[in-house]
Amino acid sequence: MSVLIYAESPGGQLKKAAYEAVTFGHKVAKIIGTPHVVALTIGKVEGSEVLGKYGATKVLNVAHEGGFDSQVHTSIIAQVAAKAGSKVVIVNHSADGKSLLGRLSVKLKAGSVSGINALPTFEGGKLRATKGVFSSKAFATYEVKTPKAVFSLMGNTLPPEEVGSDIAPENIAVTIPKSRIVVIKEDRAKGTVPLPEAELVVSAGRGMKGPENWGIIEELAEELGATTACSRPVADVGWRPHHEHVGQTGVAIRPNLYIAAGISGAIQHLAGVNSSKVIVVINKDPEAPFFKAADYGVVADLFDVVPRLTAALKKYKAQ
């Protein structure tokens, strides 16, 4: 018996989300009572021995050329799961991970729960896992009725922990089906942490008046090392790129810190951000609904306050 973690490595680089998933898998293994934690990488990957440090007891690699294809990757992961006798398979709740989850559940005859946000429980031989539903307005606990389970893990659920030491990766051979998809181009913003993984997020809305004013938001984000986000109308009119739109119909995030400037806090916006650990709201209207969901609030003109906050951070970092 084992727990298998698919460690995603876009562009050959392991991400923080992969380390998180491995530490999470290490804890799940303890919960279900197995010492075997298998981390799998697909394609050329640098530095996968470090997955041992984060809790893997075995690091496997399947050599593979070509881009992501949920059908091909599912086949690879399922073959490794069969060889490793995996009872639980964990993927990230990312674009690729979400495309794999349902397929894996069919292939492995394993009940699936997507976007889990806490460690599962294991009682009477049954796994139970919790996830956000109704766009994080509530949580639902699912019971898995099959002997095997597949989970996708929400980013930022548990921090990666160093619980072991480096392990040399081993190659493992599986049958690779022919892909019916050709990846022509991949564009990823370089340098910044993608929103679903970001621990710190600075977001702004219509209160910004226009795209030309976003400099102060970018400066604050840079000072913090945060990723930028926005409300939906702002992305709709093209002030900001689509992938920055958070909320019910955008990206759902749960960073440690969410700073919102010039966003009213409509219920559809809150739906995507209200599981953030700490929310700071900057709005000139004391009646803005966002204050009800905030931990800290500043009632003021954002054009004054945001640069002042950036300056205060700079001062704090200098100390």
């Binding site: 139970r128 919790t130 509530a138 949580f139 699912y142 009725k145 969901a293 800290y296």
Partner: peptide, 20 residues
């Protein structure tokens, strides 16, 4: 069904905002 919902929970109510 391979999975089913056994329990819902609502998030703990937020304490009042601290104004700065």
């Amino acid at each position: 069904d391979p999975v089913s919902i056994v329990q819902y929970t609502l998030p703990a109510p937020k304490s009042a905002v601290k104004l700065v």
